[in-house]
């Protein structure tokens, strides 16, 4: 749909890329929220609903799971979870009750949030607009808050895994001695800090960047009026690949980081 209601092209794009934000009245400047204590309601609600729906259904299914011939949905869930489990087995050689559930959560949740991209870009904002909600960014993974929240959580789990497997002493020893030995402890430490800080940042920005760019292309296609029809479908088809791949990459890198944390250098 091309710019409507007197919106310019830039305005249309800007509108699509603005989150529904809430904050205290005192934090608003020109009616817009600024400062740290702002919540993106659309990101929080959509990601939360998707997660509750997916994991609630999966938990319900798992509760009824039989070891006999699996029914349709159980079969499907088992297929996805079996795939994730296989990746974990191939990469993570330690023993942990956390890594597989973590990988499953990441893959399923990120995939579903990315899949929101396949709903036509104007559909959810128009529906929301009918209810008086003026801003809505339908794809939660295009919000860096979400991707950073996930990657920082993964980062903390990684540190916890390090401490659990190697103990505090072992972890410190590794930080200060690998890879150059005890004589170059400061250099080792700086290297390690850079390495570990880069992990959550690359994890978050990769997902955010891919999804943001994909969403942007959808918005640009939507601006073409009638010509969007032959373009939106191929891009959506191609995007199915991207959303799956990005979910897989996030999951895979998390497993790799966990296995690095669980193994001594």
């Amino acid at each position: 749909m091309s710019a409507e209601g007197g919106l310019t092209t830039a305005g249309y794009i800007q509108h699509h890329l603005t989150n529904l934000a809430v904050c205290a009245e005192s934090a608003k400047i020109d009616g817009h929220c600024h400062g740290f204590w702002t919540f993106h309601l659309d990101t929080l609600v959509i990601s939360g609903l998707l997660g509750l729906l997916a994991f609630g259904l999966m938990a319900k299914l798992a509760g009824k799971a039989t070891s006999g011939v699996p029914s349709g949905w159980q079969n499907f869930v088992e297929m996805v979870i079996g795939m994730v489990d296989q990746q974990v087995r191939d990469t993570f050689h330690g023993k942990s009750a956390l890594v597989t559930p973590l990988a499953i959560t990441i893959f399923v949740w990120v995939f579903l949030m990315n899949a929101m991209d396949l709903i036509p870009v104007d559909f959810l904002p128009l529906v929301a607009g009918a209810f008086g909600v003026h801003y809505l960014k339908a794809v939660p993974t295009t919000d860096p808050n979400l991707t950073f929240a996930m990657s920082i959580t993964v980062f903390f789990i990684m540190i916890w895994m390090n401490l659990k497997v190697k103990g505090f002493g072992g972890y410190m020893h590794e930080i200060f001695t690998a890879p150059f030995g005890a004589k170059l402890a400061p250099v080792n430490f700086i290297f390690r800090v850079v390495e570990d800080i880069a992990k959550p940042i690359s994890l978050a920005l990769r997902l955010f960047g891919n999804m943001y760019a994909g969403e942007m292309v959808f918005i640009l296609i939507a601006l073409l009026g009638l010509y969007q029809l032959p373009l939106a479908l191929p891009w959506a088809l191609f995007h199915i690949l991207i959303i799956t791949l990005q979910a897989f990459v996030f999951m895979m890198l998390t497993i790799v980081y966990m296995s690095m944390a669980a193994e001594s250098h």
Partner: peptide
Amino acid sequence: NATLIGQAIWFAIFI
């Protein structure tokens, strides 16, 4: 912004 905290909580719940 603070959405980060909310999302981390969601993530923890789902894990």
